[in-house]
């Protein structure tokens, strides 16, 4: 009898069900971030903005407090589509971009650099589970700073204003949700694909920053000098795709001044470009996430 057989006992306890295993990956994906001061500070700032918005909404409906402070209601912001777009969604989407820049490129890069991918995939985890877990961590984080506070604020306003408002502004809730998810999808797909392909975190971060800004500059320049009939170059710029689709989602719930400088592009083509972008990123991701790789 081999020595190890004398003491070897296979594990017989309960196992995490297959369907829930991605949660294990997700739990550890951001584990190291909670000790980072930059991350925590950014998160706090990102969550403070909705609180301020909530205070404004509350103040707007509190006549006694207003009279106490001797503020005229008409001086305050109207809580309308404008408010939710420019005051809530746009800042939160910037915050989401910043958070993605901080943690997104790390997700897979850290495992690649440490050679931990084989360790993960040697467990009863599939590649899909692994990617799903990593994505879930990022999506969860981004949700917590975009659509969740957005909908909560919408709910607050609806409850203070009465049922009529909610029925009238249902589209606003949908737009908040849709625009947030568009941005979350774009950001997570881009950063996961990048973090799988670029081994070093700072490089991956630089790439992400470049991909979110350089195409915008290019699109501007192309539109200026090529004088195309529509702003087609914008199709390659993730940030502009967001602006276009977001405008489509909000539609006429906001005034036109919110759309100054809006790229001129058929809405359907923008959605198609978003879908293609995400598909391309996922393809890149599946090509790279493997238990082993041949160097050179």
């Amino acid at each position: 009898m081999a020595v190890y057989e004398r003491s070897y006992r296979p594990f017989v306890g309960p196992r995490t069900p297959t369907a829930g295993r991605w949660r294990v990956v997700a739990r550890y994906a951001l584990a190291d971030q909670w000790g980072s001061r930059v991350f925590l500070a950014s998160l706090v700032v990102a969550l403070t903005l909705p609180v301020i918005a909530a205070l404004i909404i509350y103040l707007r409906h509190n006549a006694s407090l207003l009279s106490l402070l001797q503020v005229d209601v008409s001086q305050l912001l109207d809580i309308d589509g404008e408010f939710f777009l420019a005051g809530v969604l746009v800042p939160q989407q910037w915050a989401a971009l910043w958070m993605t820049l901080l943690v997104g490129p790390r997700l897979i890069t850290a495992d690649l650099a440490a050679g931990a991918l084989p360790l993960y995939l040697a467990r009863p985890l599939t590649r899909r589970t692994y990617v799903l877990g990593k994505a879930a961590a990022l999506v969860g984080l981004l949700s917590a700073i975009t659509w969740i506070p957005g909908l909560l604020l919408w709910g607050l306003q609806a409850s203070l204003e009465g049922p009529g408002w909610a029925a009238e502004n249902l589209r606003l809730a949908g737009a908040l949700l849709g625009a947030s998810w568009t941005w979350i999808l774009i950001l997570s797909c881009l950063s996961l694909a990048l973090s799988a392909w670029v081994r070093w975190r700072p490089v991956a971060q630089l790439f992400l920053l470049g991909m979110l800004t350089v195409p915008t500059g290019f699109a501007r320049a192309v539109n200026e000098i090529l004088e195309l009939d529509r702003d087609w170059a914008v199709l390659f710029s993730p940030t502009d795709l967001l602006t276009v689709t977001r405008a489509g989602l909000f539609g006429d719930t906001v005034h036109s001044w919110a759309y100054i400088d809006l790229p001129d592009l058929p809405l359907a083509s923008a959605w198609l470009a978003v879908a293609l972008l995400c598909a391309a990123c996922l393809l890149l991701l599946t090509l790279k996430v493997k238990a082993f790789e041949v160097v050179r």
Binding site: P202, L206, T213, V214, G217, A221
Partner: peptide, 24 residues
């Protein structure tokens, strides 16, 4: 046209990110 592209694109984005990639 060249001047416009040079200032808005080359300096602002290309040289910026190129230098970042190289010097960082």
């Amino acid at each position: 046209v060249f001047a416009e592209v040079y200032h808005t694109l080359v300096l602002r984005f290309c040289v910026f990110f190129g230098c970042a990639a190289i010097f960082l």
